[in-house]
Protein backbone atom coordinates (compact mmCIF):
# COMPACT_ATOMS: atom_id res chain seq x y z
CA UNK A 1 0.00 0.00 0.00
CA UNK A 2 1.23 3.48 -0.77
CA UNK A 3 -0.52 6.66 0.43
CA UNK A 4 0.97 9.95 -0.76
CA UNK A 5 -0.28 13.46 0.04
CA UNK A 6 1.66 16.05 -1.92
CA UNK A 7 1.46 19.55 -3.37
CA UNK A 8 3.38 18.77 -6.57
CA UNK A 9 1.76 17.40 -9.73
CA UNK A 10 2.18 13.67 -10.38
CA UNK A 11 2.72 11.76 -13.60
CA UNK A 12 -0.34 9.54 -14.01
CA UNK A 13 1.30 7.28 -16.62
CA UNK A 14 4.50 6.80 -14.65
CA UNK A 15 2.59 6.13 -11.43
CA UNK A 16 0.25 3.63 -13.13
CA UNK A 17 3.16 1.83 -14.80
CA UNK A 18 5.17 1.66 -11.60
CA UNK A 19 2.13 0.38 -9.72
CA UNK A 20 1.53 -2.39 -12.27
CA UNK A 21 5.18 -3.39 -12.66
CA UNK A 22 6.63 -6.58 -11.24
CA UNK A 23 3.41 -8.40 -10.32
CA UNK A 24 2.66 -11.57 -12.26
CA UNK A 25 -0.31 -12.65 -10.13
CA UNK A 26 -2.53 -9.59 -10.59
CA UNK A 27 -4.83 -9.93 -13.61
CA UNK A 28 -6.59 -6.58 -13.10
CA UNK A 29 -5.32 -3.05 -12.51
CA UNK A 30 -7.94 -0.30 -12.10
CA UNK A 31 -6.97 3.36 -11.93
CA UNK A 32 -9.18 6.38 -11.29
CA UNK A 33 -8.02 9.98 -11.71
CA UNK A 34 -9.84 13.05 -10.42
CA UNK A 35 -9.28 16.14 -12.58
CA UNK A 36 -10.01 19.84 -11.93
CA UNK A 37 -13.13 20.57 -13.99
CA UNK A 38 -13.91 23.94 -15.56
CA UNK A 39 -17.30 25.45 -14.68
CA UNK A 40 -20.00 26.29 -17.23
CA UNK A 41 -20.84 30.00 -17.28
CA UNK A 42 -18.18 31.29 -14.89
CA UNK A 43 -14.77 29.98 -16.00
CA UNK A 44 -12.66 28.43 -13.28
CA UNK A 45 -9.24 30.01 -12.75
CA UNK A 46 -8.04 27.64 -10.09
CA UNK A 47 -8.97 25.15 -7.43
CA UNK A 48 -7.35 25.34 -4.02
CA UNK A 49 -7.33 22.34 -1.71
CA UNK A 50 -6.70 22.60 2.01
CA UNK A 51 -6.07 19.52 4.14
CA UNK A 52 -5.35 18.45 7.71
CA UNK A 53 -1.75 17.20 7.77
CA UNK A 54 -1.49 14.05 9.85
CA UNK A 55 -5.17 13.23 9.89
CA UNK A 56 -5.25 13.13 6.08
CA UNK A 57 -2.63 10.39 5.87
CA UNK A 58 -4.23 8.48 8.76
CA UNK A 59 -7.72 8.66 7.21
CA UNK A 60 -6.50 7.56 3.77
CA UNK A 61 -4.53 4.67 5.29
CA UNK A 62 -7.60 3.61 7.27
CA UNK A 63 -9.83 3.67 4.17
CA UNK A 64 -7.28 1.71 2.11
CA UNK A 65 -6.80 -0.82 4.93
CA UNK A 66 -10.55 -1.45 5.09
CA UNK A 67 -10.61 -1.95 1.30
CA UNK A 68 -7.82 -4.52 1.62
CA UNK A 69 -9.75 -6.36 4.33
CA UNK A 70 -12.90 -6.45 2.22
CA UNK A 71 -11.57 -7.36 -1.24
CA UNK A 72 -8.79 -9.61 -2.42
CA UNK A 73 -6.23 -6.99 -3.45
CA UNK A 74 -2.55 -7.28 -4.26
CA UNK A 75 -1.89 -3.59 -3.76
CA UNK A 76 -3.50 -0.16 -3.31
CA UNK A 77 -2.18 3.27 -4.29
CA UNK A 78 -3.66 6.65 -3.31
CA UNK A 79 -2.08 9.95 -4.37
CA UNK A 80 -3.90 13.15 -3.40
CA UNK A 81 -2.69 16.69 -3.99
CA UNK A 82 -3.30 19.87 -2.01
CA UNK A 83 -2.63 23.52 -2.81
CA UNK A 84 -3.51 25.39 -5.98
CA UNK A 85 -4.20 23.72 -9.32
CA UNK A 86 -5.57 24.76 -12.71
CA UNK A 87 -8.44 23.26 -14.75
CA UNK A 88 -7.29 20.06 -16.43
CA UNK A 89 -4.72 19.24 -13.75
CA UNK A 90 -5.01 15.92 -11.93
CA UNK A 91 -6.09 16.31 -8.29
CA UNK A 92 -5.72 12.72 -7.19
CA UNK A 93 -5.58 9.11 -8.28
CA UNK A 94 -6.33 5.72 -6.84
CA UNK A 95 -5.12 2.42 -8.22
CA UNK A 96 -6.05 -1.09 -7.19
CA UNK A 97 -4.50 -4.39 -8.24
CA UNK A 98 -6.33 -7.68 -7.89
CA UNK A 99 -6.29 -11.13 -9.48
CA UNK A 100 -9.74 -10.41 -10.98
CA UNK A 101 -11.39 -7.22 -12.20
CA UNK A 102 -14.45 -7.21 -9.94
CA UNK A 103 -12.36 -6.84 -6.79
CA UNK A 104 -10.23 -4.13 -8.43
CA UNK A 105 -13.25 -2.11 -9.68
CA UNK A 106 -15.29 -2.39 -6.49
CA UNK A 107 -12.35 -1.53 -4.24
CA UNK A 108 -11.53 1.54 -6.39
CA UNK A 109 -15.14 2.74 -6.09
CA UNK A 110 -15.14 2.11 -2.36
CA UNK A 111 -11.91 4.09 -1.98
CA UNK A 112 -13.35 7.01 -3.97
CA UNK A 113 -16.66 7.05 -2.09
CA UNK A 114 -14.97 7.19 1.32
CA UNK A 115 -12.16 9.47 0.20
CA UNK A 116 -14.70 12.10 -0.93
CA UNK A 117 -16.38 12.52 2.44
CA UNK A 118 -14.12 10.90 5.06
CA UNK A 119 -10.67 12.26 4.17
CA UNK A 120 -10.04 15.79 5.49
CA UNK A 121 -9.70 17.77 2.27
CA UNK A 122 -11.62 20.97 1.47
CA UNK A 123 -11.88 22.42 -2.04
CA UNK A 124 -12.26 26.06 -2.96
CA UNK A 125 -13.09 27.27 -6.47
CA UNK A 126 -11.71 30.58 -7.73
CA UNK A 127 -13.51 31.83 -10.84
CA UNK A 128 -12.88 34.46 -13.51
CA UNK A 129 -15.77 36.54 -12.13
CA UNK A 130 -13.91 36.93 -8.85
CA UNK A 131 -15.87 34.38 -6.83
CA UNK A 132 -13.90 32.31 -4.32
CA UNK A 133 -16.22 29.77 -2.78
CA UNK A 134 -15.73 26.63 -0.71
CA UNK A 135 -17.20 23.63 -2.51
CA UNK A 136 -20.12 22.29 -0.50
CA UNK A 137 -20.35 18.59 0.27
CA UNK A 138 -23.23 16.91 -1.55
CA UNK A 139 -25.85 14.75 0.14
CA UNK A 140 -25.32 12.26 -2.68
CA UNK A 141 -21.69 11.83 -1.56
CA UNK A 142 -22.85 10.93 1.94
CA UNK A 143 -25.59 8.67 0.54
CA UNK A 144 -22.98 6.86 -1.58
CA UNK A 145 -21.42 5.45 1.61
CA UNK A 146 -24.60 3.58 2.58
CA UNK A 147 -24.22 1.10 -0.28
CA UNK A 148 -21.06 -0.27 1.32
Amino acid sequence: MRITVQEAPFDLGAEANAFAAGRMDMGAIVTFTGVVRDLPGDPLLAMEIEHYPGMTEAALTDIATRAQERWYLGDVLVIHRYGRMAPGEAIMMVATAAPHRRDAFEAAEYLMDFLKSRAPFWKREITANGASDWVEAKDTDEDALSRW
Binding site: G34, Y52, M55, H80, I91, M92, M112, L115, K116, S117, R118, A119, P120, F121, W122, K123, W134, V135, E136, A137, E142
Partner: peptide
Amino acid sequence: VAFFPPMTGG
Protein backbone atom coordinates in the same frame (compact mmCIF):
# COMPACT_ATOMS: atom_id res chain seq x y z
CA VAL B 1 -9.58 19.05 18.67
CA ALA B 2 -10.31 20.11 15.08
CA PHE B 3 -13.45 21.76 13.71
CA PHE B 4 -14.21 21.85 9.99
CA PRO B 5 -17.01 21.68 7.41
CA PRO B 6 -17.99 18.40 5.72
CA MET B 7 -15.04 17.16 3.70
CA THR B 8 -14.79 17.48 -0.07
CA GLY B 9 -11.94 15.25 -1.20
CA GLY B 10 -11.50 13.30 -4.40
